[in-house]
Structures are given as C-alpha cells and as structure tokens.
C-alpha cells in the first residue's frame, strides 16, 4: 500500500512540473499576444503623430517669391496651398463633416431613443419584437458600403426622385433632391448609426430598476408621463453616450458617403449666413474623403504621406475626443449607479 502511495506521489510530482511549465509558456504566449496588440496600436499612433506632426511643424519654403510670407504647414492644411491637391484646404472639409454629423444626430437621436423606448417600455415578447431585435443586432454588422448603396437606391433615387417630381418639377431634368447630397448622406449615416444609439439607450433603460417605473405608475402617472419625467431623465447619460458613440462612428465613415454625396471639391459650404442657412441638397466635402482623395491621387508618392498623416491626425483627434467623452460619461454613469447600489 505504501509503495503504491510512493509511486502515486512521484507521478503527481512529474505531472505537476509538466503542467506548470505548460501554464507558464501558454500564459506567457497570451501575454505576448496582448503586448503585440498594444504595440500595434502604439505603432500606428506613433506613425500618425510622428509623420503628421513632423509635417505640421514644418513650413513651406517660399518658392514663389521672397516677399511672400512663409505659410506654416498648419495654415496650408487649413486654408490650402500649392501642396494640396484641393485648393480650399481642409477647412471646408471640416465644416462639411461637422454639418453632416450634426444633421445626422438630429435625425438619429429621436429615432434611436424611440425604438429603444419601444423595446424596453412597450414591446411584448412576441415574434415581431424578437425579429426587430435580431434586425437591429444584424444592422450593426452590415458593411457600411451597403448603407451607401441603400441610400443611393432608396433615398436618392426613390424618395429624392419623388420629391423632385412633386416639388421641384420646374428644375427638371436637373435634379434637386434626386441627386446625392447632404440630406441623403445624413440620413444614410443616421440609419448606419441607429443600432449604436438604440443599443446604448436600451442598455441604459434596462439598467433602471423596475421599481422606479412602478413607483411612478403607483402615483397615478401615465406611461408617457413616467417615461418623460422619470425614465428618460434617469437614462440621459446612456442616451448621451449612445449619441456620442454614433457621432464618433459616423465621423470616421467614408465609404457610404462616396455614393450619397461627398465630393472632392465643393465650391460653396453647405451652410450660409442667409436663409435657408443650410443647404441640404448640396454636395459637400468631408475630412475622411479628403484623406482618401489625397492618398488616392498620390499613389506611391511619399511626399504626400505628411499631409495625409496630418489630416488623418486631425480626424483621429476629433473621433478620440468624442470617444473619450463617451467613456467619461459612461464611467460617471457607472459610478452613480454603484452608489445607489443598482449593479
């Protein structure tokens, strides 16, 4: 019996040594994978900042004349110069991006909130609700270019075409809304970001305890009053988070815009100081497309990498700011709920 035990002890020892070595190797490998992933991020950001920052820090040599004041590269990027293929510089593209995302936000926010409210406050557990959920879940993973195709076919040609026939028949055959433009691009992006808003809002709504709603209903409030006075205020941070994430996602999208109204160069801004202030039917410039255009029209030429990196840096900064805002909001939100013990 004791010999048996001896043998067993020995086998445990050797098995254990092997297991420990395996664990050490495997865990080190996963750790290295993590380091690699982090390294790739650092390298990308490093290149972006190094190449872009380097270019921005330099100034254009005044080739055209001694008297001409030397423009900093930052000014060149913003307002244009010989270095840029696009004469207007990046400024109109920034304005275009901002106007586009603003219009998109105006459209997507109410839609997203309403659908999230429906899913949490109204919908039962029937098949249509489930179908809607599956649809929304899938929407988030549909390639963005597909939204562009849809926007072109449905918004531009079907709806835009109808609008033209009804209200702008005088201009035909020149299309007014029957061609790609700001409105359709905003709508397309709104549909694209809809799942983001819905999911974030729904998450926030589900986090609210049932007691909150029941408390309000028990006081005799109707469902809509409960929603407006209790549910929505409590869920505001999640809704804001969703909207900011949507904006961040939209600001980086280029592919669908190529089908629904972005152009290399627009002679006028899509906003103006006179009525109607915003020109929804116009084509517009966009920071992401600007980067694309700069790259595409300088294949292989390394001289362009600085400008591309600089404008890319600009775009990444805008998006990073937005994402950071969403992150902070979410953190604050989580802390609030931790304090009230809802988690």
């Amino acid at each position: 019996m004791s010999g048996d035990l001896q043998r067993m002890r020995y086998s445990i020892e050797s098995v254990r040594a092997r297991e420990e070595k395996l664990g050490a190797v495997m865990s080190a490998m996963t750790a290295v994978a993590t380091l690699l992933a982090l390294l790739s991020v650092v390298m990308f950001l490093g290149f972006l900042i190094f190449l872009g920052g380097d270019w921005l820090a330099n100034a254009q040599s005044a080739t055209s004349g001694v008297d001409q004041p030397v423009k900093s590269n930052f000014e060149v990027l913003l307002w244009g110069g010989a270095e840029l293929a696009v004469s207007g510089g990046v400024f109109p593209a920034i304005v275009g991006t901002i106007v586009l995302t603003l219009v998109m936000t105006v459209i997507v926010s109410p839609l997203g909130i309403v659908v999230a409210l429906y899913l949490t406050e109204y919908a039962g557990t029937g098949w249509h609700t489930r179908l809607l959920r599956i649809g929304i879940q899938n929407m988030a993973a549909i390639p963005s270019i597909i939204y562009g195709v849809f926007g072109l076919a449905f918004f531009v040609y079907v709806i835009g075409g109808r609008l033209d026939n009804l209200f702008f028949a005088g201009n035909l055959p020149n299309p007014t809304f029957g061609a790609p433009g700001l409105l359709w691009a905003s709508l397309t992006l709104a549909i694209l970001t809809l799942p983001t808003v819905i999911v974030a809002t729904e998450e926030g709504l589900l986090r609210l305890p049932l007691a909150l709603r029941e408390g309000s209903r028990a006081l005799g409030a109707t469902r809509s009053e409960t929603i407006f006075r209790v549910v929505l205020p409590a869920a505001t941070p999640s809704i804001m988070t969703g909207i900011i994430l949507a904006v961040a996602r939209a600001a980086g999208e280029v592919a669908p815009l190529m089908l629904v109204g972005v152009v290399r160069y627009a002679p006028t801004l899509p906003v103006s100081v006179e009525a109607p202030f915003i020109h929804l039917e116009q084509k517009f410039m966009h920071l992401g497309f600007f980067v694309y255009d700069l790259t595409m029209h300088a294949p292989g030429s390394e001289g362009r990498v600085g400008i591309v990196a600089a404008s890319g840096l600009l775009l990444v900064l805008v998006i990073a700011t937005l994402n950071l805002a969403a992150l902070l909001l979410r953190l604050r939100l989580r802390r609030t709920f931790l304090r009230t013990g809802f988690e």
Binding site: T34, A37, L38, S40, V41, F44, F47, L48, L51, A248, R249, A251, G252, E253, V254, G288, F289, V291, Y292, L294, T295, A298, P299, G300, S301, E302, R304, V305, V308, A309, G312, L315, V316, I319, A320, N323
Partner: peptide, 18 residues
C-alpha cells in the same frame, strides 16, 4: 486594444498606402 476600432479605416489605409 479596442481603441483600434475607432481609428477611421481611411486613415489607416491612407498611411499604409503611402
């Protein structure tokens, strides 16, 4: 690591192309 998802692919691709 997740921050990669927020880099616009056009910027990634632009840098890579040039």
């Amino acid at each position: 690591i997740e921050v990669i998802a927020s880099f616009p692919t056009v910027v990634i691709a632009g840098l890579a192309a040039l």
